[in-house]
Amino acid sequence: MKVTIKNWVGVATWKWVANDDNCGICRMPFDGCCPDCKLPGDDCPLVWGQCSHCFHMHCIVKWLQSQQVNQQCPMCRQEWKFNNK
């Protein structure tokens, strides 16, 4: 062996695994954060419903709170259930 690796500094970028680019409620990109937050990351996470739709957590919680009767997904009108996979 002429050459061996002693140490290695790798670089990786992370992204949310979402089925859309933008949040269906605030229309902000998932790479960013919801309008109430300043920085994306663990402080402004995404959540998935069982209907497979995905939103900023802050956005969907706000939406669910504003609903009087049924808790529905704003995209498909199915009953909203968090998908805790």
Binding site: M1, K2, V3, T4, I5, K6, N7, W8, V9, G10, V11, A12, T13, W14, K15, W16, V17, D42, P45, L46, W48, K85
Partner: peptide, 25 residues
């Protein structure tokens, strides 16, 4: 390891930015 800590994410490696220290004989 990373995804186990942060669920719902996807990692993409960026080879352009990496660097190494090599031991050469």
């Amino acid at each position: 390891f990373y995804l186990s800590k942060h669920s719902g994410r996807k990692l993409t490696w960026q080879p352009t930015l990496g660097h190494c220290v090599l031991r050469a004989k």
